[in-house]
Nucleic acid binder design. Structure first.
Lengths: 395, 395
DNA sequence: TCTATTTGGTTGGAGTCTAAACAAATGATA
DNA sequence: TATCATTTGTTTAGACTCCAACCAAATAGA
């Protein structure tokens, strides 16, 4: 029940090095508030472990020149997986999330056991081809659409995928003997932003993923919050129109029905001669192009989801009072049109002290961000483990 | 920046004693996961400090009988204040929140400095009359309607009260030389529930206060979360009807406009011959009585706010995934009518895994809960301080 | 060359926590 | 009645975290 609060500062110092290198020991001491001796001790260990290296010396106004420390991004590698209904994406990245190998493979619906085998083969194949010794791969992060039990590493609820109620974590840890972290796609993206992206500078932020559906991840006190049962941040089913459309979840007026690309499609389909009850994943590109040509229906469609996105974000801001709300995923393609609306709606709906210092950002869209986030989940776990015991090499 | 993670386990052990006494050292060791020696060491200090006492012995299946430990609630006292527009409530309680003195005084609008003086006199007077030596009063907690900067102890935004932008904390700490904690009324109530009430058994819960307005407090990992700038839990201005009524905050369709007693009044006023644009604080009693007599308009009114309360709670549950949502304050008078509606709405709006183990509770209404919560804020601070240094008596 | 200044390492010690051994108490068993 | 197994709680040695106070090294400028 009660935990052991050892070594939390080690991780903090390593994170300072990671995010601000090149940096000297004394700078670290100053910004962390820890004693020079403490920092020196940590750094000695990091050097021995190989995650940090001394790289030249810096300048000083007077006195001895500082020895600059750098984070050694390629001292270890991790694997990121993103499972989808019909495919898997895989990346191998260094500790800074730089991709050194990537692939995307179709995934049949052949039952859990054979799917798992296939994933294992994809991983082994990737590792072999990139030419990194397996021993330097230190963790595996997996993103899954749907609800995940992070502790157990089990998929709890997901749109038609064969892997439900299998312990991905257990199976893969048995097979590869490295720690495996499974979480939903929005949470891994949030961790990605926390480590490598816009979230780096915020202690409290909320990541909102908007594409076909809406998901999210909550970071408070610099840590991903999973709530009581691991499902915190399921923003897609917040209610924005209590008397509105029915959602497949059984509820009515879910945010996902009004602010997602599904909603955009519904609002614009008839203008492009499509069935409003269907869906096309590339709807946003089509609509943005039309809006750029000045088509009213397109602009109205974008205003429509922009308005509802603003409404939901306003509620999130009131509830969490974060430093920042980061809106990511495909929606970013329409940033130019949608972002101003969201900003206006949030400004009119939240009290001044709450939004005074709030940052509202729409992130660049990058197809790879979610998989890299999955890798990030692995990196986060690895760095935690690394800073939790003094003597430990992963050779 | 970085903190010192000392002594967190001490507080955990003291909390186990506080909430489960009588309890033995070995039981504490087992439930806390800490070593027997560690627990024994802590307990020795607690005994010396006087917060814990040995009170007889328990039974064992075999072997040595355990020495039972108890929390000594009257080893110290705290003051709780609840500021309102025209009055102050004050309580003096022991460390379990049991009231030993209470009073309520009117408060004029005579400017900050004279109001502060008046509060100080009320406090001194109360302490003198209850006959507790001032030295055994160890903290002061204050609840305020509106937005508060907890760190600074300054009221940031509040409906017409003379004390805005004065540092209550600083002023009162200078005057009484005990730690002062100022927070908004909902947060203070949440802390009260965490320490003494229904929140005791939940690590993650959300407290929602519903009366004229709606406020809230978020407890995650057993700790009140204040967000980035201290305003987390401002649920009143979450948006539940994007195209709905204008709120005094400048927004539209705020939860407060649909789920609060203000909303109930608006919906029912004409049936009791009142002006729908006005407000009567006792509206709920009137409506509940009418509902009990079978008046349709009254039942409809309760259904109305019940529905919207359910909608908001559903959003909160999706966002935070707490163990429990505790709904408190005046609304509880209508629990019998409103609670079933809330439950139904939440059940239809949230996915199964999220609500499977969710507890939804409407708390008993007690006029004193908020002031006692304020005292609780003080107790929480005191216990933290008590467990942060080894040698320390507050004699 | 000397000095003031800054970086970074070393040392002693306080504090947290554990494992292991030990002492004390007690019901059951021989 | 004596012994034994069992459980409680204490003591001790030691690992780990962290800091204050030095000390040593490096360096720009007097």
């Amino acid at each position: 029940m009660t935990e052991n609060f050892k070594a939390s500062n080690r991780r903090a110092v390593l994170d300072f090095i990671r995010t601000r290198y090149p940096i000297s020991r004394s700078q670290l001491s100053r910004i962390s508030g820890l004693n020079k001796a403490t920092v020196s001790g940590f750094v000695t260990d990091f050097l021995r472990q190989g995650v940090v290296a001394e790289t030249g010396s810096g300048v000083a106004a007077a006195g001895r020149k500082p020895v600059l420390l750098s984070f050694v991004a390629d001292s270890a590698y991790v694997i990121g997986l993103l499972l989808n209904v019909r495919s898997v994406r895989m990346v191998i990245t260094d500790l800074e999330g730089t991709i050194v190998w990537q692939t995307r493979e179709p995934l049949g619906d052949e039952g859990a056991s054979s799917t798992l085998d296939r994933i294992a083969i994809i991983i082994e194949d990737g590792v072999r081809r990139v030419g990194i010794p397996f021993s330097s791969i230190v963790a595996l992060g997996i993103g899954v659409p749907g609800l995940v039990d992070f502790q157990a590493g089990v998929i709890v609820q997901t749109p038609n995928m064969g892997l439900s109620s299998v312990s991905l974590k257990q199976w893969l840890e048995m097979r590869f003997h490295i720690p495996v972290f499974v979480d939903n796609a929005a949470n891994v993206s949030a961790v990605g932003e926390k480590l490598f992206g816009a979230g780096r500078h915020y202690e409290h932020f909320v990541y909102v993923s908007v594409s076909t559906g809406i998901g999210g991840g909550v970071v408070m006190n610099g840590q991903l919050q999973r709530g009581a049962f691991g499902f915190a941040g399921e923003f897609g089913h917040m209610v924005v129109e209590p008397h509105g459309l029915s959602c497949r979840c059984g509820g009515q007026g879910c945010w996902e029905m009004y602010g997602s690309l599904k909603a955009l499609y519904r609002q614009t389909a008839r203008h492009i001669g499509e069935d409003p009850a269907a869906y096309r994943p590339d709807i946003l590109v089509t609509v943005v192009d039309a809006a750029a040509r000045g088509e009213t229906w397109a602009i109205e469609g974008l205003n429509y989801i922009g308005f509802y996105l603003g409404v939901g974000v306003a509620s999130i801001v009131s509830a969490f009072n974060p430093h920042a709300v980061l809106i990511g995923n495909e929606i970013a393609i329409g940033a130019k049109w949608i972002m101003p609306i969201i900003e206006t709606v949030v400004q009119t709906h939240c009290s001044l002290p709450i939004i005074k210092d709030l940052t509202l950002l729409m992130l660049e869209y990058d197809d790879n961000k979610a998989v890299v986030g999955a890798a990030g989940m692995g990196i986060d776990g690895f760095l935690d483990q690394l800073t939790h015991r003094k003597i430990r090499r992963w050779c």
